[in-house]
C-alpha cells in the first residue's frame, strides 16, 4: 500500500492535542468580539463578523465535555467548512491554542481503542503517536447532529438576513 501524506492542523484542547484536516480549515482567527445569540444551544458561543459574513462560533470545550475556562491570548477560532446532511456549513471552532500544520502519514493513523476513551468515539477518526503523546484526529462533521447543523446554518442565515 502506498504511503500518502495528509496535512493536518494540530491544536490544543485541555491537555490533549487534536488535529483537523487542513482541507476543512479555511483560516485561523484571534478571538474577536462574539455576539451572543439568544436561545441558542449551550455549545454555541455566539456569532462573529468575518469580513461581512456571519460566522457561528462553537465552544469546543462544551462540545467535548471539558470544563469551561476563560479565554487566553492563545485561544483561537479555527474557521472550518464542513458538510452536514448535504449542506456546507462554515463555522468557527474555539480551541485553547493552535499549534502547527503538519503532515501525517496515513499508515501511522491508528484506530481509537474501544474501551477507556473519555471522548465520544464517533468524532475521533484515529490517533497518531507523536513523541510521547497521542494526537487525536478529529472528524468535525461528526461533532454535530442534524438538528444542531440546522440550528447552526439557520442561525447564520437568520443573522445574515437581519444584516
Amino acid at each position: 500500500m502506498e504511503t500518502s501524506l495528509t496535512s493536518y492542523l494540530t491544536f490544543k484542547l485541555g491537555d490533549e492535542t487534536f488535529a483537523a484536516n487542513v482541507s476543512k480549515v479555511i483560516e485561523i482567527l484571534e478571538i474577536p468580539k462574539i455576539t451572543r445569540v439568544p436561545r441558542s444551544p449551550d455549545f454555541m458561543r455566539g456569532v462573529v463578523n468575518l469580513r461581512g459574513n456571519v460566522l457561528s462560533v462553537v465552544d469546543s470545550r462544551i462540545k467535548f465535555g471539558l470544563p469551561v475556562t476563560e479565554d487566553t491570548v492563545n485561544t483561537c477560532i479555527i474557521v472550518m467548512n464542513i458538510s452536514l446532511e448535504g449542506q456546507d456549513i462554515t463555522l468557527g471552532l474555539i480551541v485553547d491554542a493552535v499549534k502547527e500544520v503538519r503532515n501525517i502519514a496515513t499508515d501511522s493513523i491508528q484506530p481509537l481503542p474501544e474501551i477507556g476513551s473519555k471522548f465520544d468515539a464517533k468524532f475521533i477518526e484515529g490517533m497518531v503517536k507523536d513523541d510521547n503523546q497521542f494526537i487525536m484526529l478529529l472528524n468535525v462533521a461528526a461533532l454535530f447532529s442534524a438538528q444542531e447543523a440546522d440550528i447552526l446554518s439557520h442561525v447564520s442565515e437568520t443573522v445574515e438576513q437581519v444584516n
Binding site: S7, L9, S23, E27, I28, E30, N74, C76, V101
Partner: peptide, 26 residues
Amino acid sequence: ARQTNLLALNAAVEAARAGEHGKGFA
C-alpha cells in the same frame, strides 16, 4: 510574534490547501 505565528499558520493552512503547489510556500 504571536500574531506572526498566527499569520504563518494561516499561510501554512493556505499552502496545505494548495496541495503540491503550495509546498514551497508551506
